[in-house]
Design a protein around this nucleic acid. Structure first.
Lengths: 304, 304
DNA sequence: TATGTTCAATTAGTATTTCCGATTATGTTA
DNA sequence: TAACATAATCGGAAATACTAATTGAACATA
């Protein structure tokens, strides 16, 4: 059996891939450019294949190179996790944990969550990143985040997940508009263009439309908002109705408005909240515990 | 960030875990005993925790040590896969592939499979291990096998799987016994102790009993057989009836006997065949292709 | 109780590997 | 064309990994 590539050389390759420049990559690794250069050559020799095409002056990762980068990333992340795990003496709820969360969940969950974690697991150092689903999945893949809180269903891309619970959708509108409506609200009672949604980057839109069986798109106003708070503002101004998740309502997003929350039609008018992590992780017990903490804070916990 | 442990030291740890003896482990690694000894100490220092308890003369892995072994195994397997992947230039259907299969599938599948693979992927070097489900799962976890063909349902223990297809159960008995029976056969038409099964190590027994809704255990003869072939012998001798999977019948296991195969009662009287692999693998495309090859050979392919 | 054996740790010396700084080769920009 | 940027190469220094031999402790046995 030929010799295994060294983790060091694999990390050089990752740095090179990230910086696309030998000097900057070398700097990032705290080694000289020559070291990194020969490290890469070494790696190519050991792996018996070309990882980057040298094009006099510049270079380009080969297809194989990209593949190796991908696999190397996984190996290095695992090793880092092993190191961290051992150094923290297996104390699973201590040390750094990098969590990503989407904007339609974060403001209504993370306040309570950090409070709870600070109380129950004071040595856990939670860092939080708020971003869209696709961006978060990329960061998870790159090892820049450890775990995500997303709304399901979502293409897991090979990641694993815990389903944490359900979060019902409510149809929110000004009280004056709501008077003559019966629950669950049938959408054909509403005027055209009267439902406002978030811009399409937010998965909430798609989830709400399908969960609430809102097939008739003529009801949807083409103007899109960028946050739940602005949706609430628009509804409060009497522009129309919108879907707001229960957890946002529970955390008082409608306080100080004249809005009412009605039950929309749709068999299962809700979204699921899930915790997503890399299939290759070895911090499953940590994530499981975190999942339990989060599930308790959801409107309808569902953790198996 | 502290320095990552080296793969070399991790492999020393694995060898030590396997051989439970510094000398033999060192031999297995082709290094001297002192090298291995200091490698382990090195590792303990880097990880900042005790991995083995030295008890003058002998030693014992600590709980943390066992954990680290587990994670190290995964890292090393991934790295080996990376090396193999690169060296084979990404030719996914070439080189060694170590497959495990249970005894109630192997004889009726692997002949055709090897024939097919030899034709379609002549450079694939398939090695086969036949063993019980639990043993195979252990070998998969240890990285000694790459992929398993098992009957489902089974506790995957965190592994991933493709469902390949269904394999119906048939109730097999001597033609003279079958004459007065209507299909699907109701078990209360059969005398007590008239159904013979495999010994309990074989998952076939449990699968058949539950799939065929054979609740009344008084029908089951307490004598158990060790292979499908002996079950067939016993049935042919007129001792009683037994469950035989369709794929065994298709491959002629009843040839030369006076046995007939009847439809047993039970909503879904069949077992599923699945391909199992480590969640941390990076040979998914290979396994997917293999899954397709195998599915084609099953009585009822079902691969999504 | 003495003697030999087994096993892991230690030590000291050697071999190997890794790394850096300087230099070179090549292309790009001013 | 000069100045600059980039990656490869080279030679020597520093770090490391490795071995053989030794030590010491535990155990078996005569």
């Amino acid at each position: 059996m030929s010799k295994l590539p060294s983790l060091k050389n694999l990390s050089y390759l990752l740095a090179l891939h990230q910086h696309q420049n030998f000097n900057r990559a070398a700097q990032a690794c705290n080694v000289s450019q020559s070291t990194l250069s020969s490290g890469i050559q070494n790696l190519e020799e050991q792996l018996g294949c070309q990882l980057i095409e040298r094009d006099h002056k510049s270079f380009l990762f080969t297809g194989m190179g990209e593949e190796v980068v991908e696999q190397a990333r996984q190996i290095l992340t695992s090793t880092e996790e092993l190191l961290y795990f051992a150094q923290s003496q297996g104390k699973i709820m201590e040390g750094p944990l990098r969590l990503g969360c989407i904007p339609t969940i974060a403001p209504f969950l993370l306040g309570d969550l950090t409070k709870k974690l600070k109380a129950d697991h004071p040595k856990l150092q939670l860092s939080i990143r708020e971003d869209t689903t696709v961006n978060l999945l990329n960061l998870l893949r790159n090892g820049e985040l450890d775990v995500l809180v997303l709304a399901l269903p979502v293409d897991l891309q090979g990641n694993q997940s815990y389903v944490l619970g359900r979060d019902p959708f409510k149809l929110v509108m000004h009280s004056s508009l709501a008077e003559k409506l019966a629950e669950p609200v049938q959408y054909n009672q509403l005027p055209d263009n009267s439902i406002f949604l978030l811009e399409k980057e937010h998965c909430l839109t798609g989830h709400a439309v399908s969960a609430c069986e809102l097939a008739d798109s003529s009801k949807i106003n083409p103007f899109t908002a960028t946050s739940l708070h602005s949706l609430v503002q628009m509804a409060d101004a009497g522009l129309g109705a919108t879907f707001i998740p229960q957890m946002a309502i529970d955390r008082g997003i409608l306080n100080g408005t004249d809005l009412v929350a009605l039950q929309p039609s749709g068999q299962q008018a809700s979204r699921e909240i899930g915790l997503i992590y890399r299939p290759t992780t070895n911090r499953r017990t940590t994530f499981r515990k975190l999942a339990e903490c989060i599930a308790e804070l959801l409107p309808e916990p569902l953790l198996k």
